[in-house]
Nucleic acid binder design. Structure first.
Length: 1059
RNA sequence: GGGCCCGUAGCAUAGCCCGGUGGUGCGCCCGGCUGAUAACCGGGAGGUCAUGUGUUCGAAUCACAUCGGGCCCA
């Protein structure tokens, strides 16, 4: 054991511990140690390689690390491969920005090979940066061996999964409407659409009915640019539609509008007057035909037979008639497919109109809105602007459009029931994350569009024959090489694009150009991380995962994508339990964002208080699934708690070193045999703290099992602060100061050693650095090399003593009440009191204070005696207090005299008589009055110099009356304290001796101290000589001379070190 | 527009499932302690339990609505 630094320096401590781990490869040792244990298969949700982690990412890994460390200590062989998500649009967009690109054409010009190279480099560089940041948090995952979505064997896992989908008929090549980003020129998944406010036109348009002059259907839209693709109008079968004669600018028009909406629509069209001519059910309108108002300038529109249909999604809003463009809307598309409408989409990938759009050709759709409105001419009935939520591309923030294109889909809608069934089998923390949130999300799941028209991603392994249109899904690299007869250098684009396969029809199959949605990459992580399908042994033994934990945003992300892919590939959920955690918000509960300037980074927290405090703060602040409001004050509080832990650890070390203490051990390995054998002989406070740490261990264990890290950490912090620092250490200090051999001191050493060892074991998963540092100093010579090699201890019932813990609880209440009463009586704790009396009816209070822990009580109260009185304490008297209102009624003008009589009467007598139901005669001669129950109340009257304070089920009375003996001791203690203060100022060592001189101005006090306390003082301050005298100042030869005012008595004290 | 979570003193939280005087920590003020000491301990002040309505003898707790925050969706 070595001396411990006085100041808790988290940063320095963590650096040296990390260095120690590195040089000794402690992580590998720990894994090796558990390698034969029962496997615990954890899958790391791969963070996207953006380069910097934020507080939420840190939280995520801290949670994972703490839970995994717990399982390792419990003997589990933890599969803890880290993962990184390294493909996808976000990286492409970053690289595009760096290269100054504006569109896909720039990439093609630059060369896909070079572009991919840049993306790869960017991802790898960031991955390395992130490794370091995670390691600085003290996270122990396998980072060097991390799975990366760019690895060939990982890509193969995705290919293999798609081949399974094809095998099961779950893969579909479809012409469908998808979310489309016109900047990135690709389809994007529902999961990639972000919603934000956007200003758009809100227009009402008249569609002329065929063969009915001056008669129109009125529709409403916020996307005028979709009108060139209009093919139909939908109505609701059951709505009433009105034919309205509308008068505007003295011109009459016949309009069809849902009847309840007529008034509102016509007001928007600024019609002076109108009349409803007739109404018809929506069903009666079905089959009507109309012409496009854009027919003259859009050639495409001239070929379309526009008609009215019924649809159930039509709502009674706007005009009650919905413009249908199956090429530009999901509902429209579904309806169009059902009704056999032409799916027209005159818009290209960049969001520009094609030739068939006539006068709009070449225009960007969102920019063409105004032109469309102009082209509508008189058919534009009304125009306003609305602000509404509109979808945007998650990466480049461009407003998305809907576009009908040829894409690849996984038929999630057909898997839905199976997925729901699987969700129910998973254990969710908290329960509602699965049963409510995730369940609801899957209930509405649609088919998953997995194809993207981009470059940096896993190529979709589908080869199509241009001759016969047959396609083949390739499941492995080997299969591809075999079928193509060519080696594959790199499974990425553009390398894989060059590989062709001969088709059975004699044609040459070429790969479709698409890559996978990046969410599909991570979806296969649970088997890809095991090397499957390349290697099968681990997969067969371990899969599905025992545990995963991610943020609540992953409900629609990774929890979902994994479940989808796994259900398709294996028909079951890829995880057995899931913990959903919250988000890191700022102190106001707002999202941290660069634009708000409220971002706190893990680095800055670590720089101030270290990773362990950050870990402890995050885990203790809120339940994992609640959002965390980051708060620096909270961090400071936890830092203080860590500092107290450090002080508690440090406090006994110098004494142990002085005494060359070695905890009882067997062959250099520590165990608790000594504690078990001697427990019953040990002082109560030792038994108590031993019991407590075991009780705490049981609580902590139960909490971690349920992912209740907040309960576990709060319990530990509470133990350190309340039980250990504020209670046990205070009691045990004097035993540490005993010089020479002492059983009591030895018990204290063994106890505190035991408690520290148990405590750091419990704390190790959460604070891996501090506990390692403490452990390295405490461990016996053959103990395991690291705290992280220790076995978890979940509390020994044999060492728990519930009744003792209860008794100590009572004594602590007593302790507080004493301090309270002393404060009222203005008697400092340093001054002894003769007696403390506890009055109670409670037997547990009597047993704790009066019997079992009486010695502790005397010590804590600094009292010569502490005794318990059941029922009543005879020194408590009663004081009678007159009730003036009643006296006035009863005695009229004599009231004042009666008041004086009552106040002067013996309260105790009065209470006894009246309490017995009698009246009492007070007064003399003519003035005698009968006093009854209604005239008085009684207040407790304490004896002089006795002060009271309440505690649960009892009242504590402290008698602060001084006797000469008590006074002598009090002053002696004052002198001791001042001499010790001076020793400290002189920076003397604990074992140094001094000579001292005290000149006390008050003759009586001087005599008091001199009389019985000279030897006691000398002993306490380690003085070889001590002169106490009434007059004269201390000689100048002292190292330090100081004037003191002790409770109004002037003293001049001098001390000098004996050399 | 829909789903889920959250809203308790200046700040952070417990209690809510299973209704019965609202605890704790930080900060603040006052006092104590002084061989853990740029630590530590005691006391005090500070609350419309987001708002409103309902159920009930009784609501922070149950129900409904509204407002605010977060995540997810349309």
């Amino acid at each position: 054991m070595k001396e411990v630094a006085a100041n808790f320096n988290a940063k320095g401590l963590e650096n040296s511990v990390q260095e120690h781990w590195r040089t000794n490869d402690t992580y590998a040792t720990v894994k090796q140690h558990r390698s034969s244990g029962k496997p615990f298969f954890f899958v790391d949700g791969p963070p996207y390689t953006t380069g910097t982690i934020h507080l939420g990412t840190a939280w995520n890994k801290i949670l994972k690390d703490s839970i995994l460390r717990y399982h390792r200590m419990n003997g589990r062989h933890v599969i803890d491969r880290a993962g990184y998500d390294m493909h996808g649009l976000p990286i492409e967009v970053k690289v595009e920005q760096a290269l100054g690109f504006k569109s896909k054409k720039d990439i093609e010009k630059y060369g896909i090979k070079k572009f991919i190279g840049q993306c790869r480099e960017f991802a790898i560089r960031n991955k390395l940066l992130m490794d370091d940041q995670f390691i600085n948090l003290g996270v122990w995952l396998d980072f060097p061996g991390a799975y990366k979505t760019v690895m060939p064997e990982y890509i193969e896992a995705a290919w293999w999964t798609l081949a399974r989908a094809e095998e099961k008929g779950m893969l579909e090549r479809g012409h469908r409407v998808v979310n489309w980003c016109p900047r990135c020129e690709t389809a994007i998944a529902d999961a990639e659409v972000e919603y934000a406010d956007e200003n758009d036109p809100s227009v009402f348009v008249k569609f002329p009915l065929k063969g009915r002059a001056n008669e129109f259907l009125v529709i409403w839209t916020t996307t005028p640019w979709t009108l060139p693709a209009n093919v139909a109008v939908a109505v609701a079968k059951d709505f009433e539609y009105a034919k309205v004669l509308a008068i505007k600018d003295d011109k009459e028009t016949l309009l069809w509008i849902a009847e309840p909406l007529v008034k509102a629509v016509l007001r928007k069209g600024r019609c002076k007057d109108y009349a409803i001519l007739e109404t018809k059910k929506g069903a009666d309108l079905v089959g009507w035909v109309y012409e496009s108002p854009l027919a003259s300038c859009v050639p495409l529109q001239r070929e379309i037979a526009h008609k009215v249909l019924a649809a159930d999604f039509v709502a009674l809003e706007n005009t009650g008639m919905v413009h249908i463009a199956p090429g530009h809307g999901w509902d429209d598309f579904v309806l169009g497919t059902k009704e056999g409408l032409p799916i027209v989409c005159p818009v290209d990938g960049a969001g520009k109109f094609k030739e068939e759009a006539g006068c709009f050709a070449g225009q960007f759709v969102r920019d063409s809105n105004e032109n469309v409105l102009v082209a509508l001419g008189d058919h534009l009935f009304a125009k306003e602007t609305v602000t509404h939520r509109y979808g945007h591309c998650w990466r480049c923030k461009t407003p998305i459009i809907f576009r009908a294109t040829s894409q690849w889909f996984l038929k999630i809608s057909e898997m839905r029931d199976l997925m729901l069934k699987e969700v129910e089998k998973v254990i969710w923390y908290p329960e509602w994350a699965g049963s409510a949130r995730f369940y609801d999300w899957i209930k509405d799941a649609r088919d998953w569009c997995i194809s993207r028209q981009r470059y940096w991603g896993i190529p979709i392994p589908v080869w199509v024959c241009p001759k016969c249109d047959a396609y083949r899904v390739i499941g492995t690299i080997a299969e591809l090489e075999e079928r193509s007869g060519k080696p594959l250098a790199d499974p990425h684009r553009p390398y894989v694009d060059d590989i062709t396969i001969p088709c059975t029809c004699g044609g040459t199959m070429k790969r479709v150009e698409d890559i996978f949605d990046v969410w599909f990459d991570s979806a296969v992580a649970s088997w890809a991380t095991l090397g499957f399908p390349g290697k099968t042994a681990d997969f067969e033994n371990l899969w599905p995962a025992d545990f995963i934990t991610e943020g609540q945003d992953q409900t629609r992300g990774w929890f979902y994508s994994q479940l989808g892919a796994s259900t398709i590939a294996f028909g079951k959920a890829p995880y057995k339990s899931v913990c959903m955690h919250g988000f890191a918000l700022d102190a106001e509960g707002k999202k941290m964002s660069k634009s708000l300037g409220n971002v706190v980074t893990p680095e800055e927290v670590i720089a101030k208080v270290g990773a362990d405090v950050l870990r402890l703060y995050i885990l203790s602040s809120s339940a994992p699934w609640d959002d965390l409001k980051f708060n620096w004050e909270g961090v400071g509080t936890i830092n203080r708690a860590a500092n107290i832990l450090w002080n508690v650890y440090r406090f006994p070390v110098p004494y142990m070193i002085l005494d060359k203490f070695e905890p009882a051990n067997t062959g250099g390995i520590w165990d608790d045999a000594y504690i078990r054998a001697h427990l019953k002989q040990m002082p109560d406070e030792d038994q108590f703290i031993i019991s407590r740490i075991n009780t705490v261990a049981a609580t902590v264990d139960a909490a971690i099992k349920e992912c209740q890290l907040h309960r576990a950490t709060r319990e530990l912090i509470n133990f350190i602060l309340e039980d250990l620092s504020r209670w046990y250490v205070q009691l045990v200090r004097e035993r540490m100061w005993i010089e020479g051999e002492s059983e009591s001191k030895h018990f204290a050493y063994e106890t505190i050693y035991y408690v520290m060892r148990r405590l750091i074991g419990l704390l190790a998963p959460v604070c891996p650095h501090i506990t390692e540092e403490i452990y390295s100093n405490l461990r016996c010579k053959n103990d395991p090399a690291s705290v992280h090699l220790l076995d978890w201890n979940k509390g020994e019932p044999a060492l728990m003593d519930g009744s003792l813990e209860q008794a100590v609880g009572i004594v602590r209440s007593f302790d507080e009440a004493c301090a309270n009463a002393r404060q009222t009586g203005k008697r400092k704790l340093r001054w002894p009191v003769s007696e403390v009396v506890v009055v109670t009816d409670s037997e547990p209070v009597r047993d704790a204070i009066g019997r079992r822990l009486n010695v502790v009580c005397k010590d804590r109260a600094n009292a010569k005696t502490v005794r318990v009185v059941m029922g009543r304490w005879e020194r408590i008297g009663w004081k009678a207090e007159p009730i003036m209102k009643a006296l006035g009624r009863g005695f009229g003008k004599n009231s004042f005299a009666v008041k004086t009589l009552i106040e002067g009467a013996d309260g105790n007598l009065l209470k006894a008589e009246i309490g017995a139901g009698r009246t009492v005669k007070l007064g003399e001669g003519d003035a005698v009055f009968d006093i009854g129950d209604e005239h008085v109340t009684f207040a407790e009257q304490l004896p002089p110099e006795v002060f009271s304070a309440p505690m649960p089920d009892a009242t504590v009375y402290v008698d602060v009356q001084l006797t000469p003996e008590l006074e002598a001791e009090g002053y002696a203690r004052e002198v001791i304290r001042r001499i010790n203060e001076m020793r400290k100022q002189l920076d003397l060592a604990v074992e140094d001796f001094i000579i001292a001189d005290a000149a006390v101005a008050d003759e009586r006090i001087c005599a008091l101290i001199q009389g019985t306390w000279r030897a006691g003082i000398m002993d306490e301050v380690r003085a070889r000589e001590l002169a106490i005298h009434n007059t004269g100042a201390a000689a100048k030869t002292y190292d330090m001379v100081k004037d003191w005012d002790v409770e109004g008595v002037a003293m001049t004290i001098g001390i000098a070190k004996v050399i």
